[in-house]
Design a protein around this nucleic acid. Sequence first.
DNA 1: GCCCGCCCCGCCAGAAATGGGGAGGACAAA
DNA 2: TTTGTCCTCCCCATTTCTGGCGGGGCGGGC
Lengths: 237, 237
Amino acid sequence: MNSKLETSLTFLQAASSLEAFQTATERVRDHYRVRHVVYHWVNAEGERFGAGTYSGAWVDRYVERDYLRMDPVIFGCFQRFTPVNWKDLDWSAKAAREMWRDARAHGLGNQGYTIPVRGPSGQFALFTLNTEADDDAWEDFIETNGRDLMILAHEFNRKALEFGPGGENATPPALSPRELAAMRCLARGLSRAQAAAELAISEHTLRVYIESARHKLGALNTTHAVARALSTGIIIV
Amino acid sequence: MNSKLETSLTFLQAASSLEAFQTATERVRDHYRVRHVVYHWVNAEGERFGAGTYSGAWVDRYVERDYLRMDPVIFGCFQRFTPVNWKDLDWSAKAAREMWRDARAHGLGNQGYTIPVRGPSGQFALFTLNTEADDDAWEDFIETNGRDLMILAHEFNRKALEFGPGGENATPPALSPRELAAMRCLARGLSRAQAAAELAISEHTLRVYIESARHKLGALNTTHAVARALSTGIIIV
DNA sequence: GCCCGCCCCGCCAGAAATGGGGAGGACAAA
DNA sequence: TTTGTCCTCCCCATTTCTGGCGGGGCGGGC
């Protein structure tokens, strides 16, 4: 039995508040003997929630300098499915290298490993380990613990979604079949006239569906309605 | 060492063609002694790629009857982060219950477990096990093998993304920061005037961004552009 | 140093969407 | 039976979007 993983997991599973995340990251850090462990969750406006062992100074710096917009880790993970070893990322951009120097100055180790985790509604989170080590040792570490870390990352995310920021677990409104069909047509770029033709109904009728869907979704306009339908997952493209 | 998992994994990792997926699902089925194992990958037009042990008749039936649109498994997984036991899904809809009877008639077992996997650009896949068992036995099975199955599901998806169906791995078009901001505003339901005010630019400038984004995304209109931006994951509501 | 992409602004006219209003029939659950 | 939700159709005026045209400044990469 893998006790490092299990004790971290049982602690996390029992957690009943967001504060527990902080402690959980510290536990993982201590169990796996790395310098930093961070779970954070990125969205449109930047960062919705995060917990980790980075110093407050570095977190502030990160936000202040808007590093989120140039961080190769964020960028790389966002377009990959697999976890990334920081060494494999593209650090060629000047802004990225500056950020890296800054990070080092704020106590980050030279090695990092970040696991992207994606949830419903476009939710996107990162689970990161950082430490000081030479390349070979770090490779070995990842080889040995990679699978554990993936489980951990998922468990963190599951918990975060569970009592995450407002109403994440709210069930989306149920649209009628025709309303859904209308939303799908619009999401595919059809105009109302085209969509009406596709569904073989009058354009007026289609409008009724769109209006109705809009109200049910609490959307301000058609684009908003389609966006909501997509991001709540009631339609798939 | 967990040999069931390891042999499945090594085989899959060595796979060099899509045909290997078929064999891989069969291996998993035999290792874990279940009736069916399926990996499939859903997108706009329905199913782009799938491999599994379902009978051809059932797959055809599924497509013919457009079950994708009413399948509680698809629906449930799409809104959840965690794997689902089919028993826990909402089978109250009439269409769903009919589909279920049909599925049983086509050789599916009474128990199922499906793991949703999400990749970059809104990619969404499902890894499913199905078999005949009583509830308690199935709970035990999931308890015992759940973690293995998650690793397997991810490995399947990694492979699928690696040499996935054409152009799927194409990186989504890169929008400029302002274009992204414009898309985000629209996805939040703001009108052009409101969005322009929010970004503190003239409405015309905003239009330029929207147009530009629309072209880059290959979208037919604003709603389409926002839909694409959302479903490729370049913006998060 | 030049080019390209990004950022910002203006005007115009036609096309399209929006926000009200109204009506009737089908079907299913309470 | 009644209530409700869905599906279907129609009219109005107003607002908003779309697709063109034009302009200038700034910064980074080749």
